[in-house]
Structures are given as C-alpha cells and as structure tokens.
Computed example of a mutant assay.
Amino acid sequence: MSTQPTILVVDDERELADLYAMWVDGEYEVVTAYDGRSALEAMSPAVDVVLLDRHMPDITGDEVLNRIRAVGHDCWVIMVTAVDPGLDIVELDIDDYVTKPVTRTQLTRIIENLRVQAKFSNGGRRELAALSNKMETLEDEQSASELEETDAYRQLESDLKELSDSLVENGDGA
C-alpha cells in the first residue's frame, strides 16, 4: 500500500490529461480519467487531489464536482480549465482555479501548496485559503471596479473577512 498522495487527473483532452499525469507521476499515485463518467467511477476515498477540467462533453466538471461532494469526498479540487473564471466560481466547492494553459511549475506549486496547507491547517484555514484563491483568480481576470459592483464579489470579500476574523479570535491565526 502506497503512502504517496493520490491525484485523479480528469480532462477530456487525452494528451493534456496524460501530460498532467506525467508531470506529477513519481511524487504521487496518479489515476487518469478522460471524461466525467470515468472520473466518477475512479473516485474513491483514496483520492487526495482532483485536477478537474470544467468543460467536458458528457458530464461537466461542475457536475462531477457536485457529485464528488454530494457523496462526501473531502479531497482537494483544483479546476484546471480553459474556461475563464466568472463570478460563478464563488459558488464552486473548489480549492483553486487555474486557467489553461498551465505550466508544470504552476501545477506542481499549487498541489504542493495544498499539501502544506493540509498538514498545518484545520477546516477553517482550508476554507480561508479557498476563498482567497477564488478572489485572486477573479482579480486576475476582471478589474477591481467591475468586481466591486457585483454582489457575489462583495459577498466573497465579506465571507473572507468574517472567516479571517473568526480564526484570529479563536487563536488559529490568519
């Protein structure tokens, strides 16, 4: 039995899925799925991280994500997709969102950051990191003035501040 973390790579572009799998193989146990159905079949409690494409022809990444969460899998999920992020990512139960093309360095850095967070954080800190990652992703794509005009972004800011304050009050730091 392996002690390496397991990564499920999901992308309907086979070459890309295989490339991501090759990038992380050796450091991780890797399972590859080329569509949403296969991803759901491959999903198990052993999976620690899911690299999930958002736009797939059979079952979308959003739906795969919803089904993974609905059955109680608490793995880290990183959307790695060509779909530019919109305010709808605020509602996604993801840990990070990366827009293709992605480099090996970017991908491995994100995964390693999540692993470090997992070692040293509780659920509140994980949620704080996820909210922060979503804000950063949106801020990279849209101007601050555009974002400030949206209820979803203002709610994201409010949630981030509230959670951060709560962690500080409880002595968890932030």
Rank of each mutant, 00 (worst) to 15 (best):
E169M: 14
L128H: 12
G123Q: 10
G173Y: 06
E169L: 15
R67Y: 08
G171R: 02
D12T: 12
F120W: 10
V10S: 11
Q4S: 13
G123D: 14
S166Y: 07
P57G: 09
E13M: 10
P85H: 01
E149K: 14
P5H: 11
M22K: 09
A21F: 07
Q106N: 02
D88F: 02
V98Y: 00
T103N: 12
V30A: 09
Y34H: 14
G72R: 09
L51N: 07
K161N: 07
E41V: 13
T81C: 09
R104D: 10
A118M: 00
T32C: 07
G72I: 08
L147K: 04
I68C: 09
R154Y: 05
V47P: 07
M22N: 04
R37A: 15
D12H: 11
A130D: 03
D93I: 04
A82I: 04
R115H: 12
Y34F: 15
S143F: 07
D11Q: 05
E149A: 15
E13R: 11
Y97V: 05
E127L: 14
P101L: 07
A21Y: 05
S44W: 01
Q155C: 00
E157R: 15
L138F: 11
V9D: 04
A70T: 07
D84N: 13
L160N: 12
T99A: 11
K100G: 05
T99P: 00
Q117P: 00
I94P: 01
M1G: 14
R109Y: 04
G26E: 06
V31W: 06
L65I: 04
L8W: 01
M79F: 04
V9L: 03
V49L: 05
M22T: 08
L40F: 13
W23C: 09
D48N: 15
V50W: 01
I78T: 06
P5I: 02
S145W: 11
M43W: 01
I111Y: 08
G72Y: 01
D58H: 13
A174L: 05
M135C: 05
P5W: 01
S166V: 00
Q106I: 09
T99M: 10
